[in-house]
């Protein structure tokens, strides 16, 4: 059996064991190592990718279920010249520390901002329930997300 799907916009046909996790296939077959192999249980979010636009922990998805699916990993959300807005805001706010959680954070937050363009800080925290950062950089991550909010910015000085 083979499984055909789109990976970062490119058609792929996988011919290995269809019970393998998408994470294993991304890392071992396609050498896309942005999604990290950390807890293997869906707790930490380090392997988050988007399947048909929805953030999904790749460690828990048997690749055999992905026939016809559109898979996007961190390698497919931006280019070095044109970063995805969450990536750019993360640089601007000096968010990244060790980098292990970070690809997953970008995948979760990119989707979250599409559905919630004007979130509160509490909304962002709820959205990140399944993305664990052990460098404890959460507050700066939230600052970066809030900078992308479409909400009108509060005035910092009186207008003439």
């Amino acid at each position: 059996m083979t499984v055909s799907f789109t990976l970062n916009g490119r058609a792929r046909t996988y011919a290995g064991d269809p019970r393998s996790s998408l994470l294993e296939v991304l890392r071992e077959t396609y050498r896309l190592t942005g999604a990290k192999d950390v807890c293997g249980e869906g707790f930490c979010g380090a392997c988050m990718v988007q399947i048909d636009g929805m953030p999904t922990t790749a460690c828990l998805v048997p690749v055999g279920t992905l026939e016809g699916a559109d898979v996007r990993s961190i390698e497919g959300v931006g280019t070095e010249e044109q970063l995805n807005p969450v990536q750019q805001a993360s640089i601007d706010f000096d968010v990244v520390q060790c980098g292990m959680c970070f690809p997953g954070m970008v995948m979760t937050l990119t989707h979250f901002l599409q559905d919630n363009p004007q979130p509160t800080r509490e909304d962002v925290k709820s959205a990140l329930t399944g993305n664990i950062c052990r460098c404890t950089g959460y507050e700066r991550i939230i600052d970066a997300v809030m900078s992308l909010s479409l909400a009108p910015k509060p005035l910092t000085e009186a207008q003439p």
């Binding site: 869906g42 707790f43 979010g45 988050m48 929805m54 953030p55 999904t56 922990t57 828990l60 998805v61 979760t108 709820s126 959205a127 329930t129 399944g130």
Partner: peptide, 9 residues
């Protein structure tokens, strides 16, 4: 229950 990604699956 769990987290958003798990609740979707």
């Amino acid at each position: 229950s769990a987290n958003p990604a798990i609740r979707r699956r």
